Computed example of a mutant assay.
Amino acid sequence: MSEIATIGLDLAKQVFQAHGADAQGYTVFNRKLRRGEVLPFFEKLPPCIVGMEACGSAHYWAREISALGHEVRILPAQYVKPFVIRGKTDATDAIAISKAMKHADIRPVPVKTAAQQAAAMVLHTRTFFVRQRVNAVNALRGYMAEFGLVADKGIANFRKLVAALPERGDPRLPAPARLLLDEILAEIETLTARIQRMDEQIADHAKQDEDIRRLASIPGIRALTASAIKAHVPDPRSFKSARQFSAWLGLTPRQNSSGETRRQGSISRMGNAELRSLLYVGAMGVIIAARRFGTRSAWLRRLIDRRPLKVAVIALANKTARVVWALLAKGGIYQAPAELAGS
């Protein structure tokens, strides 16, 4: 058997597919592995490069296989798909992974530690509970509107919505409807308590992490956003520049250029949607405050004056992302420009 140089591993729940190739790229084997056979199989092999698509279990398998002496590369799934030849099977997917990881232009996803995965899980769970609370509040608002009971929109006006509920026994609201509304209210209170506990957990962790404290000093970034950045970007030095990091977040314009003709569209929205959303919300808060109270930043004043609100917010989020990369990759602390000093 030829010496194995690379292995493309197609991950699954129970039945995995492994494609081995030699240094010239010729197939050595392409076989199925049951879940319990994966680690013993790699334990017997000499050290080689193992590639797999980014998915929910990829970081776990990357840590386990790396511990056996292999070099593991996690590849973005959208960059592996073009290498699939004719149809989709586990065997062709494994071959596509083997081919894709030989291209130096495809940057692998950094392997996360178990602690980094746990930190990301906290943030994802918080987002899940927030989404559930929004659904419950919307349901409560909709049902109450059927009986002519309304209040201003938004979670900030939730107490006004509750105050609009009549007393129990009021003829305007039948007893079965009131019972169901009470159940929804109880669910909202439970979700709110869970979100508050998670916010406290995130805040406690932020106080102990030096990188998060440095990031939280940037305008528009607070503990939640800084914690999300630290959890989702384990190795900022994997990005060659601040612009590459911003492009990974999807905050740079989509290119549609040819020759000397350059056309730029809206932002690409590639990469991590959660981080992009948090940076956008933070930038929106900074610009709203600048409009209301003013700002000493000449750049921000010019941006607000000449651009629509949302375009200005995206531009500020893009700039903030580049500052984030600089702090994480090069160290140091955030220092406001001279024109911002004292603001």
Rank of each mutant, 00 (worst) to 15 (best):
S2M: 07
I4A: 07
I7V: 15
I7P: 00
G8H: 03
L11R: 03
A12L: 05
V15S: 00
G20E: 12
Y26K: 14
T27L: 09
T27S: 15
N30W: 06
N30A: 13
K32Q: 13
L33Q: 03
F42D: 03
K44N: 11
L45H: 06
C48P: 00
E53M: 08
C55D: 09
R63V: 15
R63T: 14
I65M: 06
A67M: 12
G69D: 06
H70D: 10
E71K: 08
Q78L: 09
Y79S: 05
F83Q: 07
F83N: 05
K88W: 08
A91F: 00
T92W: 00
K102A: 14
D105F: 14
R107V: 15
P108I: 14
P110I: 05
A120I: 08
H124K: 15
F129N: 04
V130G: 05
N135P: 03
G142H: 02
E146Q: 13
F147M: 06
A151R: 03
F158T: 00
R159G: 01
L161S: 09
L165H: 03
L165Q: 04
P166V: 14
D170A: 09
P176M: 14
L180T: 04
L180E: 03
D182G: 09
D182Y: 09
E187T: 13
E189F: 02
T190Q: 11
L191W: 01
T192D: 12
A193S: 11
A193R: 12
R197Y: 07
M198Y: 15
M198S: 02
E200F: 02
A203V: 03
H205N: 08
H205K: 05
A206N: 07
A206E: 10
D209A: 13
I212H: 09
I212F: 06
R213E: 06
R213G: 08
L215D: 12
G220Q: 10
G220A: 07
R222V: 11
L224I: 14
A226W: 12
S227L: 06
A228W: 10
A228P: 00
I229M: 04
A231R: 12
F239I: 14
K240M: 09
A242C: 05
Q244G: 05
F245T: 11
S246R: 11
S246M: 13
L249V: 15
L251T: 11
Q255S: 05
S258V: 08
E260K: 15
T261L: 10
G265K: 11
I267D: 01
M270L: 13
G271F: 02
L278P: 00
M284L: 12
G285D: 06
G294E: 06
S297D: 10
S297G: 03
S297M: 10
W299A: 03
W299N: 01
R301C: 07
R301P: 00
R301N: 12
R301Q: 10
D305F: 07
P308A: 14
L309C: 04
K310A: 06
A312S: 12
V313Y: 04
V313G: 05
A317T: 10
N318T: 07
A321M: 13
A321C: 08
G332C: 04
E339W: 14
S343F: 15
